[in-house]
């Protein structure tokens, strides 16, 4: 009998999104989650490394849950993960979220200001919700689970 070891990390894959303001929000939101909201358990994956042939990124995404954070409906992060590594555990489409939140302001891709950072924080919280759901569903071996085991 083989026992499946639960992953300790969740991969968060941002679309690159250099062309669109939502891409900048995606990248910065992922970074905020890594640095500020869920440090230690969040690993960022570099999407273009999939095609550049980095087996480490692909293998990680096969073994650990991955949340794809896309700036737009093209869903490059989600589709690339599914193409190279398998199904994602969660996906965010920032453009759809902005519509849902009633945001139709002009946003900057190159110089994020107060509004862009406010939206980045909100998107970061959406990512956090998905990570916390994975923890609650027992998909991740996290510190709280180890403490319970002791």
């Amino acid at each position: 009998m083989t026992m499946r070891t639960k992953p300790k990390f969740v991969g968060v894959l941002s679309c690159s999104g250099e062309e669109e303001p939502e891409g900048t929000i995606a990248r910065n939101a992922v970074r905020l989650v890594m640095e500020k909201y869920r440090p230690g358990i969040t690993v960022s994956l570099c999407l273009p490394l999939y095609l550049a042939g980095d087996s480490g990124e692909r293998e990680f995404a096969k073994l650990a849950p991955v949340i794809a954070v896309d700036g737009c409906e093209k869903a490059c992060a989600k589709l690339s993960t599914e193409k190279y590594s398998g199904k994602v555990s969660g996906a965010i489409d920032i453009r759809a979220l902005l519509r849902e939140w009633g945001v139709d302001d002009h946003l900057s891709r190159s110089r994020p200001g107060e509004l862009e950072w406010e939206l980045t924080e909100r998107v970061a919280q959406e990512i956090v919700k998905k990570i916390d759901s994975l923890i609650q569903e027992g998909e991740l071996a996290t510190k709280p689970e180890k403490e319970e085991a002791n």
């Binding site: 690159s16 095609l51 093209k74 490059c76």
Partner: peptide, 20 residues
Amino acid sequence: EELLPEKADTMCLALLTLED
């Protein structure tokens, strides 16, 4: 956006990863 806006542009690298 500032130095060569008429001649240069950018694109999402992820689109190439996805072989768009």
